[in-house]
């Protein structure tokens, strides 16, 4: 019975839609590309249509667009200060892209680009490289004083500095794995519950009645996944702001 149902991992398989091979690389336009494009379209529609009237007294839609903007703007301002607002477009783009990828991924038959480590890792590397470039441009070699926390006794530095360096280097990993693992786990859990519903329902008799439990579970997990989708996008934006704060202000916190 079970082998006829798609496995919980099958939803993550990349399926080419328009094949494209360049220099031995498979650059096909696939289901993930489609849902990335849809996320871009969704963000653009959400933000431009909402602001189409650009009214002084906003309607509901315009209010949502403005609140999203101000929410991220405040996050950046709090974590990276006024100087960090220079990077607001980047952080806002990251947040909206991740948010819409996550949310669209909850639609039936959709695909979640952010459930793939390579996607989240690329985004995390973008942040990581931005932080390094900004830090070096602003502070030159002094940027590396980031690895030497103030107020630490000299004899501790041989221990502290490697720890700081490792923690700095592990940022893109933790940033990408956090998002990817949350999406992967949520979608897998939904699929597993769904499989239970189908197999119990098909089992007949008293077993069929038991299918209601995993069904309720799906409802609960779906609700949770909406929270996780928004939360992980926010976490990505907050951590990006905090990392950029390091690059802009070194040790000072805002």
């Amino acid at each position: 019975m079970l082998h006829q149902i798609a496995g919980p991992m099958e939803q993550f398989v990349i399926k080419p839609i328009v094949p494209l091979h360049v220099g031995g690389l498979d650059l096909s336009f696939s289901n993930t590309s489609l849902w990335m494009a849809l996320a871009v379209a969704g963000v653009t529609i959400f933000l431009t249509m909402g602001m189409a009237r650009a009214a002084l007294v906003p309607g509901r839609w315009q209010s949502m667009a403005e609140m999203t903007y101000e929410f991220i703007a405040n996050t950046v301002r709090q974590n990276a200060g006024e100087a960090g607002m220079k990077f607001f477009p980047l952080i806002f783009t990251l947040f909206m892209f991740v948010l819409f990828c996550n949310l669209f991924g909850l639609l039936p038959y959709s695909f979640t680009p952010t459930s793939h480590i390579i996607v989240t890792f690329a985004l995390a590397m973008l942040v990581f490289i931005t932080v390094i470039v900004v830090g070096l441009l602003r502070h030159g070699l002094h940027f590396f004083s980031l690895f030497v926390p103030g107020g630490v006794p000299g004899w501790l530095l041989p221990i502290i500095v490697p720890i700081e360096i490792i923690s700095f280097l592990s940022r893109p990993i933790s940033l990408s794995v956090r998002l990817f693992a949350n999406m992967l786990a949520g979608h897998t859990m939904l699929k597993v519950f769904a499989t239970f519903v189908v197999s119990l329902g098909a089992a007949g008799g008293i077993m069929s009645a038991g299918a209601i439990l995993p069904l309720l579970g799906i409802v609960a997990v779906t609700a949770l996944e909406f929270l996780v989708a928004a939360l992980q996008a926010y976490v990505f934006a907050v951590l990006t702001s905090i990392y950029l704060n390091d690059a802009i202000n070194l040790h000072e916190h805002h």
């Binding site: 990349i14 498979d26 696939s30 996320a39 871009v40 892209f97 680009p113 985004l123």
Partner: peptide, 22 residues
């Protein structure tokens, strides 16, 4: 599927395009 390395180039390629467009 997340470890299917042959799909990485395509994913990153389209991610870059989507992200830059956005």
């Amino acid at each position: 599927p997340q470890l299917a390395i042959e799909t990485f180039a395509g994913q990153v390629f389209w991610l870059a395009i989507s992200f830059v467009v956005l």
